[in-house]
Design a protein around this nucleic acid. Structure first.
Lengths: 152, 152
DNA sequence: ATATTATTGAAAATCGTTTTCAATAAGAGC
DNA sequence: GCTCTTATTGAAAACGATTTTCAATAATAT
């Protein structure tokens, strides 16, 4: 079973009905290489399903988020972008040039937490880590641009 | 020189004028034990300077943020809360019960970054870490509440 | 003391998001 | 397949947070 059907099944088990707007929204989310804002999702959905309403996008996103299927990706300027959720010890790694976002395992943070707990007295029970950088593709593009500049 | 005057000096060096609304806003930010939303800052400022306008609060916050003096603190539901900025390798540790937020040093993340770089091909150049937990005060309160419940 | 110009606060505009509501369509039962 | 129930839909209106506009004010340089 592909991911899209998996999500639909989870929705159904939660008592939701499977509708074409929902199919389209899930499709857009799953196939995007980067986090998207609600309005971007709306625009992409409109291409495949012109009649869709922005309100339906918001309502579906709310459902998906509360079911833990999607998650906010935070950036300096805000936190309105959404992506399929990370699970377990996974965290996002965001390309600051093109936005391409992937997940990585961050399971070696235990010692940091222990150290922070003993130095602050806080009881740490949740953490939130995101890395920013340049993806392989954008590194190559930069090289191309640089060599162009060199020759100019 | 106290922190408040330090901030005022930085503003002045950037070509800003020192006004009483700005003094009050800075005072509120520096003396809060937790991150505040713009409207909360506005309300607190009004106590000391009733004539102040919400617009001035927004404008001053924008200045302070762009000068790197304050920073957004992100939470599950949003990222509209502001605190004096962390510098260097510092990160926020937020109490999920009362909001009390402190800074801790997170300088042992180098090995994680190296590992992620070699496994993903991304070039990591910025990271973002926040911890959530229970502060010492709220741990004590929980104990009190629990023992009350036990005796009931 | 004066002139210059950044800053102010109120009102209006704008943006993203939520609510309201009547019409529609998904899925359960027959 | 047909009917009934009710979740879902899209449009319009409402809403809250933030930004813009603008004339009046006040901080600083001279």
């Amino acid at each position: 079973m592909n991911r899209s059907n998996h999500w639909l099944k989870i929705l159904q088990e939660d008592g939701c009905r499977i509708t074409s707007p929902r199919r389209v929204i899930i499709d857009v989310l799953i196939n995007s290489p980067r986090a998207l804002q609600p309005t971007e999702i709306y625009a992409l959905c409109k291409e495949k399903h012109p009649g869709i309403g922005l309100v339906t996008v918001y309502r579906t996103l709310e459902r998906l988020e509360s079911l833990g299927l999607i998650q906010r990706v935070h950036r300096e300027d805000g936190c309105h972008m959404l992506m399929p959720a990370a699970d377990g010890h996974e965290h996002y790694l965001v390309c600051t040039t093109c936005g391409r976002t992937i997940l990585f395992e961050g399971d070696d943070l235990g010692t940091l937490f222990t150290r922070v707990e003993s130095s602050t007295g806080y009881q740490v029970n949740e953490h939130w880590l995101q890395l920013f950088g340049t993806c392989p593709g954008c590194q190559d593009n930069n090289l191309l641009v640089e060599s162009k500049v060199d020759h100019a």
